[in-house]
Design a protein around this nucleic acid. Structure first.
Lengths: 232, 232
DNA sequence: AACAAGATTGACCGATTGGTCAGCTTTCTC
DNA sequence: GAGAAAGCTGACCAATCGGTCAATCTTGTT
């Protein structure tokens, strides 16, 4: 069930217009279309014909590029994982705790707004027991959390923030930020919006920042109020 | 696509051992088995034969009781919804904000621990755009949030808590608490556990309480530390 | 005891699923 | 420009899908 992570994304780009370059273009195009389909219907709910229709290609063409539906799915997961790991750069011992955590929350919220489908595909995978991502979660992600937790513990020991359990703080941040992508249907319904606005996301970011920063005993400056998020 | 909510769950219980009583028993038994299957594989991923196998009944028997897979699914959703609405009782104007919010968080965390499958079924439904729950979200849930938001606004106006945007505070609480059910696979992997322990949940509850209460400018008393949640 | 209503289920159905493949076209290489 | 390699796709496949139904068994009523 577990999939070994490839490193294809780190290979250098082939010359523009070449055969290999065109292949990458098409693969990327298929993956982009598949992201939306998998996000909306899940792995089992996404049929190869639906994936083909979404990319505007015949079904047999998808099989030519990826072999199986599973391979297409894991290739997509692989391309999504980089996003997960990239946002923690700000959390380094020499940085200011408040600024570092704020930057992390903002990065996660930004990712929720700009790549909601990627977030949903990831969420769906984990929700169903992470059959393909299990080894990644127990490997790279666990290492990352361990490393960043040590940074937080350093700040706590130095009295620069209050003693919050670092892994659980990460779980809370992930949950609060990604909920704006994963559970967007619920948030939209409650706020009575056809779709979430930039202001909704700003209000969300502000609220998450408030909880995280004050929860860690750090300074938090409220932005100028834009009014209540629900009418009447 | 939308499903009208039934009120079957409010009818009185028929005499024990009677025909109607036995029918309810079987329906409840099927729903309990279906909850696990739908939670683990989603609506599309759960086949009628898998649902039949999980309940130990022939497939045709499920169709006898529920007619279609969709009807079985919506009946399950309906039984889950009551849980969602029941935990907000503590949020009333005359209560203490800190105690009320803490009780709410604790209730949600408790539900995540004891009914993880129900949480996952709900999460899966919303994740895929809430095709069956849309009307409920825009109806009962929106009304509930409006009502409870007014309570929080009252507390804010009275200076009993800081000005947190009430709907977004609810989104944050829902996300942080249900993540222990919905994304349990991820949390388990990061914490390196075969399964989440009571202590993990206690640590999680403590962290969520800290963020919510301090985020609202309310008093928070840390429980005695039980040690770091990650080894090393 | 007789009958009706409810409960049960193996066998079957058309539709759709993921996947294959032969045969065609396009592009690159020499 | 000839041959090889890569790209492409309509037609097809076995397996599985959700759902149906006639036949049988069980239970409650009289």
């Amino acid at each position: 069930m577990e999939v070994p992570r490839t490193t294809q994304n780190e290979a250098e780009t082939p010359p523009r217009g070449s055969r290999a370059w065109q292949r990458r273009q098409r693969v990327a195009h298929i993956l982009a279309a598949a992201e939306a389909v998998f996000a909306e219907t899940g792995f089992e709910g996404a049929s190869m014909s639906a994936l083909a229709a979404a990319s505007g290609l015949p079904k047999a063409n998808l099989h030519y590029y990826f072999g199986t539906k599973e391979a297409l799915y894991t290739a997509l997961l692989d391309s999504i994982l980089d996003l997960w790991l990239s946002a923690t750069d700000s959390i380094r011992p020499e940085n200011d705790p408040a600024e570092a955590l704020a930057a992390y929350v903002r990065a996660k919220m930004h990712w929720s707004r700009t790549r909601p489908f990627a977030s949903k595909v990831f969420a769906n995978e984990v929700l169903h027991g992470a059959p393909y991502l299990g080894s990644y979660l127990a490997g790279e992600l666990r290492s990352l959390v361990r490393e960043k937790s040590r940074v937080l513990e350093g700040w706590i020991a130095a009295g620069r923030m209050e003693p919050v359990d670092p892994p659980h703080l990460f779980f809370a941040i992930w949950a609060m930020t990604q909920t704006y992508a994963d559970f967007e249907a619920q948030i939209r319904a409650v706020l009575d919006r056809p779709e979430l606005t930039a202001q909704d996301h700003a209000q969300g970011t502000e609220t998450v920042l408030r909880l995280v920063l004050k929860g860690c005993g750090l300074r938090f400056k409220a932005a100028a109020s834009m009014g209540a998020s629900m009418g009447e």
